[in-house]
Design a protein around this nucleic acid. Structure first.
Lengths: 228, 228
DNA sequence: CATTCCACGGAATATTTATTCCGTCAATAA
DNA sequence: TTATTGACGGAATAAATATTCCGTGGAATG
């Protein structure tokens, strides 16, 4: 990405004029062009675009944000936005990368150590709920926007799928090694997802109380009953 | 509404030219105009507009649907759509009325009889979950669309608020007369909302099993614990 | 320093959507 | 039957967006 001193081509590199010329067989006398100083301002422009876009996404939602909007907000020409991002999808993806870093979702590899030393299921569940709900609280606004427009942008869907994968990995670790059926596991997945968090936020009392409630509910879910 | 033989004015009656003239003091020699035959085709047009709109809402969502879209789909001129509905909000409201009738949400007044004769809490909860989940299943698609664009249309918000009010009334009846705190009640509200239903739908097994799971969770929620 | 390169953005072009005007024609009144 | 009324929709107008072209100026090269 930040390949200072390399041959640069923005927008993923598929559409630089230079790049296109390279593919052309008759590019005999073409001066090699490395970017050093320029790369900086180029990166700045890119960053400004992404910042403006995230701002607009936060305000109006992803679907309601247009290229012109972004250009205005970033204080640059619309054509420049297009050169950096050929379509909204790629812009959304770029924002996704930033957002992912900012909200730092739980990842499967964290799961192992997160529950180390916690033997009692109760403790493990508490840890699980704390971890997941801290995350939801961090990402609240943007997760909400992403879920709202998920069906309109495959990139949002991918993002959320990744988020859900990480959380479900935590759930599995928290619940292991107890013997639980797949269905029960899925029930806990449901209870720990963002939609339920959102619903839970409407319950009065402080955050700690809400987390306690959820942990208790998960405990109930894990108590498998006989089904008729 | 369907006042055949009355003086008609479409679009809620605020902007009929005739109506405007009526307000004018100098409407001395104005022929009285009652509509009989015409009202029929007028109602048909209105119905076609609403049907087209609901179709588009189902396909692309509320926010993504434009007047031009609606006109095309209904096979009429855009101007006609405007005469019937001066803005998207009024069209959304009109659709809401139809949708409300189609999905027939639980209403507070049904609550009383719904639980009559059911003394055991377990039975009451089962009845509650059945009633609410039958409703969610009926309205699934449109409720999802409404929730997705809720923030963009006050009319959708009103609609959903009304839906939620009805369901919460059921919840209260189902839980009464047991002594439960406000917080516990809110917890059950959360568990019975549409978002949780959506999450629950991802749990494998048949629908009956899912309902059983939810009823059990609600039962757990009602078992108030001491909180530290 | 002369030459080459290319990111930037103003401006042109093409669509799509929003909104209004107004003539037509069938329905309605007298 | 004749004059009147108003719903309808084609067409005009306005405005926002999408998308591309191309000239410019400063960076990069040798």
């Amino acid at each position: 990405m930040d390949s200072r001193g390399q041959i640069r081509h923005i927008g993923g590199g598929q559409f630089s004029r230079n790049q296109i010329a390279m593919n052309d067989q008759s590019q005999k006398n073409r001066r090699l062009y490395r970017m050093t100083e320029r790369a900086k301002t180029q990166d700045e422009t890119r960053a400004r675009i992404i910042a403006a876009t995230m701002q607009l996404h936060d305000e109006k939602g992803v679907t309601a944000t247009s290229f012109v909007d972004v250009a205005k907000r970033a204080g640059i020409g619309a054509a420049t936005v297009y050169r950096h991002f050929p379509n909204m999808g790629s812009l959304v993806t770029a924002c996704g990368t930033h957002v992912w870093e900012e909200m730092a979702p739980p990842t499967p590899d964290q799961a192992e150590e997160l529950f180390s030393g916690l033997d009692r299921r109760e403790d493990r569940l508490k840890r699980l709920v704390d971890e997941v709900y801290d995350f939801y609280a961090r990402g609240s606004l943007r997760l909400g926007k992403a879920y709202a427009d998920r069906e309109h942008f495959p990139e949002l869907d991918q993002f959320l799928l990744a988020v859900e994968t990480g959380i479900q990995a935590l759930v599995r670790k928290a619940v292991t090694p107890a013997v639980t059926s797949q269905t029960t596991l899925e029930l806990v997945y449901a209870l720990t997802d963002f939609a339920v968090w959102t619903s839970m936020q409407r319950v009065s009392g402080d955050e700690a109380a809400r987390r306690h409630h959820l942990a208790r509910l998960i405990g109930c879910a894990l108590t498998e009953p006989p089904h008729p």
